[in-house]
């Protein structure tokens, strides 16, 4: 059995790797179960490290460190996924309050320390 011959065909582009990584990180975060927020928004906790980095770096994801940024992201029709970093000045009740006053269903990931 050779383990060299097929290597070239398994190489993925960086973009594809990033996309796959972000998708895997999202699924891993989703395994922890959601916090059900108003209007169908769902909040998932994501472990700080490679998982949170993959989600943060994903192209379609907006990062929000303050309440102002979070509300901007929630209100933007172009943003579907919001990432809230570990050091964000946004608490769980803040997230709930902002989702409650903006009737829209989005997916939120909050970085947490394991």
């Amino acid at each position: 059995m050779s383990n060299t011959g097929k290597k070239a065909s398994h190489l993925m582009s960086t973009d594809t790797l990033e996309e796959v990584g972000a998708a895997v990180a999202q699924q891993k975060a989703m395994e922890r179960g959601p916090k059900f927020l108003p209007h169908g928004c769902r909040l998932f906790e994501v472990a700080s490290g490679w998982e949170s980095n993959m989600i943060r770096r994903d192209k379609g994801v907006a990062s929000a460190s303050t309440m102002l940024e979070l509300e901007d992201a929630i209100r933007s029709p172009d943003v579907k996924i919001v990432f809230i970093p570990l050091d964000a000045m946004v608490t769980a009740p803040d997230i709930e309050k902002i989702c409650q006053r903006n009737g829209v269903a989005k997916t939120l990931f909050k970085e947490v320390r394991e």
């Binding site: 998708a23 999202q26 699924q27 989703m30 395994e31 179960g33 959601p34 169908g40 928004c41 769902r42 379609g60 943003v79 579907k80 996924i81 269903a105 989005k106 997916t107």
Partner: peptide, 10 residues
């Protein structure tokens, strides 16, 4: 798809 994110495996 319309809400962003994937359907959780569960």
């Amino acid at each position: 798809e319309s809400e962003g994110g994937k359907v959780p495996e569960l």
